[in-house]
Amino acid sequence: MSIVVGLIAIGVLALIFGIILGFAAVKFKVESDPIVDQIDEILPQTQCGQCGYPGCRPYAEAIANGDDINKCPPGGEATIKQLADLMGVEAKPLDAAHGTEDVKKVAVIREDECIGCTKCIQACPVDAILGAAKQMHTVIEHECTGCDLCVEPCPVDCIDMVPVKAKPETWQWDLKSVKANVSMADNIPVKMVE
């Protein structure tokens, strides 16, 4: 008899908790992005392909399927750390086989040398190069991700990757850099009271 009571009691309890859990699952459901979207969000979107995949999204899919997180040189250590946090794995140093972390750069076309072959336009993953066949091309600076992909196809080697210029509004308050910043404008005669 007592066994029956026990069974009923446990059964009722199980039922109650089951209902509570079921209710909680619906009520407090956490909507989260699919993991690929979250990874893609972290990647720098240079679409440079240095990871060996044709763009950031494919690499995000590869990471979601278990590929290494240290193949993205433009993102560097910071991206690796964020990916490690997200994926719950150990952060590791950047895989040198895929390149090294570098200062941010943008592509600049030496316009007088450009022959208008459109090869770079086809290579640009973000459509940041403007121009038409037999016309001079130019890079839309603020849309260039610095991926480097346009340099190789250029038959006349007229594309340079130049470091992004520091501007006062994006300056990072690095006081040690001040003297160097000024020396850029060194040619200006500075008159001083002795």
Partner: peptide
Amino acid sequence: KAKAEIRNIAREKAKAELARQRFERR
């Protein structure tokens, strides 16, 4: 420094978002 860096991160993020959209549209 921290403020400049936070703003920078936000800028980078906006830029990355733009690049992603442009990549997807391409």
